[in-house]
Design a protein around this nucleic acid. Structure first.
Lengths: 236, 236
DNA sequence: GCACTTGTGTCGAGTTCTCGACAGTCTTTC
DNA sequence: GAAAGACTGTCGAGAACTCGACACAAGTGC
């Protein structure tokens, strides 16, 4: 399993970045950026989920987009020096390749393909955000809960997601008690199981039925804009 | 009053686009893009407000970002051919300069300054979207109503905004009856007046007090990222 | 002037979610 | 093994908003 942006690079473009890529294992809960931080490192996840969270003055934080193996964190920092707008936090244990912003910037200057990928990624991430704007205004917590689980499920290699209800409540911007109620409803429908700090996905179909359309809209956007995994090969 | 992106261009860069700019007056309600439309024209508003709206399958539509004289509509289409993700609709009567995407693309290839401005604009628009994600999840309709009015007020030359409560309900993604109730509350506080299809802003200070922080966060983002108006000159 | 369309005011029942509180359970640490 | 900390279950009052309905008012076209 490999980051899709990196594996989409033709060999000559990949050679521009390869010498500067280092592997990193990111544990759950690790903070990669806070709002205002200078973006000096770009992370290309091979698996796992990184959340972008918007922070409010009163300390409330809510997820505004997620990044998985189809994308990268901090990519816009390769175009020009930039501050993070969000908090970036590691959602599930994540293996990633990372590279310094200035080094990726040099590759960006040399490679049209890299410029194109960054451009398309920005567009897809923007699409993710605008869909979430609508989703948060219009859809029920239950639908958003399912959407969140499905998006996460796509990006990890397991049917088991390690997270607490309290944490998920933060992501969705609702009370913990509301998450408990929704989780119970989905449990009774047989779509998930859960225990302390863990959710098991039993029925993707069930979750898709309860989820709002936003899950699919965002996924199709990524598919349309970004390179899809090749079934016959993988660069390890 | 002039579009800030255009007026920030140094003369030699402006000369690249000037021959292709044509003036257009956009009436309220005019649809500029629907989701999936190819972006073939970029609009630089001199005043007025253009809304980006995310559409749902059931026909619901909600505003995900707005564009005024500090930005442009369709700018990403100058980088590479692109589909609109949103509906773009003219909110208030708008004077704008427009240019074909392919023509702006040519200027984009030649001018580093133009590339930089488009890049910064994309970042600011992304910041607008992620803030709105949080705002829609966490803040009351009353706060969002005020935020919307303030943002609009910044971009027009008048204290009078022409819009119906029904339309604003769509923008905010709530029931019309809720907008009526909120409008009444603000009227009683003396912050606005209104009649059929018109809202008058009486007290910006009042609206700012009721509005959420999101108004200011987004505004400061634009100020940080994009060129600010010069007080001593204007290019007509 | 009249019919028609569109926008606003109001009402009330119902749903969703908040917010605070507290008990119970699981895990970690010493 | 005991204590402490973290996570979950549940309850209940209350606020915010939905949703449908209907009356009224203000413009619009003929």
């Amino acid at each position: 399993m490999q980051n899709r942006l990196l594996s989409a690079l033709p060999p000559e473009d990949y050679r521009l970045v390869a010498p500067h890529l280092t592997h990193v294992d990111l544990e759950r809960g690790r903070l990669l950026y806070e709002p205002g931080d200078r973006i000096d490192t770009i992370y290309f996840p091979h698996d796992g989920v990184i959340s972008l969270m918007t922070l409010m003055e009163n300390g409330a934080a809510i997820e505004s987009a997620t990044i998985g193996r189809e994308g990268a964190l901090g990519l816009m920092g390769a175009v020009s020096p930039r501050q993070s707008l969000s908090r970036a936090i590691v959602q599930t244990p994540t293996r990633a390749a990372r590279i310094g912003a200035s080094q990726l910037h040099e590759a960006w200057e040399k490679s049209a393909k890299i410029r194109e990928l960054i451009d398309m990624h920005t567009e897809a991430l923007f699409g993710h955000a605008v869909q979430s704007v609508a989703c948060n205004a219009l859809h029920s917590v239950e639908a958003r809960f399912c959407r969140w689980l499905l998006t996460c499920h796509d990006r990890i290699a397991s049917d088991t997601v390690a997270l607490t209800q309290e944490f998920l409540a933060d992501m969705l911007g609702v009370q913990r008690t509301t998450v408990t109620a929704v989780a119970r409803a989905l449990l009774e429908k047989g779509y998930i199981r859960y225990r302390r700090g863990v959710v098991d996905i039993i029925s993707r179909e069930g979750l898709e039925a309860v989820s709002c359309e936003c899950y699919d809209v965002v996924r199709r956007n990524y598919e349309r804009l970004l390179p899809q995994p090749k079934v016959d090969q993988a660069r390890g």
